[in-house]
């Protein structure tokens, strides 16, 4: 079974791609030893976007269901795990299970409403925004987690890393996120190479034709939403325990949803490496630009978002499938059949 799994994951993957992936992984593993705290915080951001982008990609990239409200799952999971920790001293490693469940329950609710009543495309996207928005308003008045005043986790100077309680230094979060990103990458490869992956892509390309081939489109779209929202929940748990403060106005904001889908769109929708590449390119370039300007004595508020906008426009105009597909061709890393 292990051998079969191994074969399935690696089927058609060029040796060179594996080698490059291995090198990238080694580079990421040793990076914290070489970089300063500021750069480490940037790398954490890169991994956060890579992982969350991958989770969103399951729904949109694989199955073609556009969610513009993924901040909902991040926020719900962040609040759930943080509240359980603060109010009941429940370690986030266990709280994560509750967080995943709640995110998936909301995902199931949205999916059921949309797919049962045939809401698709733009209207589906609007529905996802609506859910994120009214949850934000709800949390603004949710006294148990201090409403719009914000919810804070106790912080102290950490000398050791407590992984069980996610209390520790940034480097711990870095390795946790790296593990999550790698796991998500492998998991998504496994999904894509199985029946579910083929069915999702068929639904994405043409739902009517997919149904004619015996695919229960309702069930498979629901699975996409459930898996995507469950994966995104872990980003929320990370968010709560890394930043230690939560404001409904910020975490559920639509700009958060947009921010986390830029990586996969720019990297390459529906591809496995697209979200990772997109996260690197966007985050590093945006931070680099900001730092350069800052060094030159210019402080321009919102410059990052202007930059995101330019990137998005450029990619949509010149590389509608994202950066990764043409880059993959150039590197000779296309999968064989």
């Amino acid at each position: 079974m292990i051998a079969g799994l191994y074969e399935r994951l690696l089927d058609g993957v060029p040796r060179r791609a594996l080698l490059l992936l291995g090198l990238l992984l080694i580079a990421m593993l040793v990076a914290p030893l070489l970089v300063d705290p500021y750069l480490l915080s940037i790398l954490i951001l890169v991994l956060y976007f890579a992982y969350t982008g991958q989770a969103w990609n399951v729904m949109m990239g694989f199955c073609g269901q556009l969610s513009l409200g993924h901040s909902l799952y991040v926020g719900l999971a962040a609040y759930t795990s943080a509240a359980l920790y603060v109010h009941f001293q429940l370690p986030p490693t266990i709280g994560a299970l509750a967080a995943i469940s709640i995110s998936m329950a909301f995902g199931a609710g949205i999916g059921f409403l949309a797919f049962r009543f045939g809401i698709g495309g733009t209207y589906f996207a609007l529905l996802t925004i609506a859910f994120a928005e009214f949850t934000r308003v709800g949390f603004d008045h949710f006294a148990w987690v201090n409403g719009s005043g914000g919810f804070f986790l106790p912080v102290e100077q950490y000398t050791r890393n407590d992984v069980l309680n996610l209390r520790g230094r940034p480097v711990m979060f870095y390795y946790l996120l790296l593990a999550l990103t790698v796991a998500a990458f492998v998991f998504c490869r496994w999904l894509l190479t199985g029946r579910i992956g083929y069915y999702w892509q068929a639904i994405r390309e043409d739902q009517e034709a997919a149904q004619t081939l015996g695919i229960n489109t309702f069930r498979y779209k629901m699975l996409a939403v459930l898996i995507s929202s469950g994966m995104t929940a872990l980003s929320g748990v990370f968010f709560a325990f890394y930043y230690n403060n939560l404001f409904p106005e910020q975490i559920f904001n639509i700009s958060r949803s947009i921010e986390l889908i830029l990586g996969p769109i720019i990297g390459g929708l529906g591809s496995l490496f697209g979200p990772i590449l997109g996260a690197f390119v966007l985050t590093l370039l945006a931070e680099g630009l900001y730092e350069t300007l800052h060094g030159l004595g210019y402080d321009i508020p919102g410059i990052k978002h202007v930059f995101y906008g330019i990137c998005l426009a450029a990619v949509i105009m010149y590389l509608p499938h994202g950066i990764w597909p043409p880059l993959r061709r150039k590197l000779g890393l296309e999968t064989r059949q």
Partner: peptide
Amino acid sequence: KPFKELTALDNVMV
């Protein structure tokens, strides 16, 4: 109604 982005083989595999 082909699955345009998929290869011919993947179309038939579905």
